[in-house]
Design a protein around this nucleic acid. Structure first.
Length: 181
DNA sequence: ATTCTCACA
DNA sequence: TGTGAGGA
């Protein structure tokens, strides 16, 4: 059971369980506090700030991930997002997949695969990952091509330049870290 | 104080 | 893929 909507006034005075005061509703430690009380048969609804504190991912980004269909938190009657602890783990997973350069629509596909094993990506999705790797290679090749052509364009005028900073040209700086597709 | 949506790079 | 503005 997820507490939200009409239960908001309960949170205003902190969270109580069997008469014990567990902490304030917006406390960053709420997730941990609930873990201590696993005897409870309901799931506490976490506001976005608590999830941000628990995961290290900003509230702004959590909203963005929802917009990209990577998360689907519940809403209170006033429209505020209410997460539960089962939303915590996916956030870290999303971060790791983004760090691998995967676009959000691919990550959504990966998250949709319910047959979870131990890793971040199911083995059955290996073809998908290989396809992304191929796209990355293609971009790398194109970047190398652009780098060569641009070097041709810059090195000639530089030979006639009187600007001393032209001698500090570093090809490595031409590679900026952008994502694929 | 926190969270919301809309708009922008 | 993210961020900033501006309001409830």
């Amino acid at each position: 059971m997820v507490l939200h909507g009409g239960h908001r006034h309960h949170f205003a005075r902190g969270v109580h369980l069997f008469g014990c005061h567990l902490g304030e509703a917006d406390s960053p430690h709420l997730a941990r506090l609930h873990r201590v009380c696993q005897c409870a048969d309901f799931v506490l609804a976490l506001p976005i700030g608590a999830v941000a504190a628990a995961t290290g991912v900003s509230a702004r980004l959590l909203r963005y991930y929802e917009e990209q269909n990577l998360l689907a938190p519940a809403r209170t009657s006033s429209g505020q997002r209410r997460y539960d602890e089962s939303d915590i783990e996916p956030v870290g997973r999303i971060r790791r997949l983004l760090d691998a350069g995967l676009p959000t629509h691919v990550i959504a596909e990966i998250l949709a695969c319910a047959c979870r094993g131990s890793g971040d990506v199911e083995p059955c999705l290996d073809p998908l990952l290989r396809d992304q790797l191929a796209r990355l290679d293609a971009r790398l090749t194109q970047l190398a091509f652009h780098h060569e052509r641009l070097t041709e364009l810059t090195s000639r005028p530089a030979a006639f330049s009187t600007n001393p900073s032209d001698r500090n040209y570093d090809p490595g700086l031409q590679l900026s870290g952008r994502r694929s597709q």
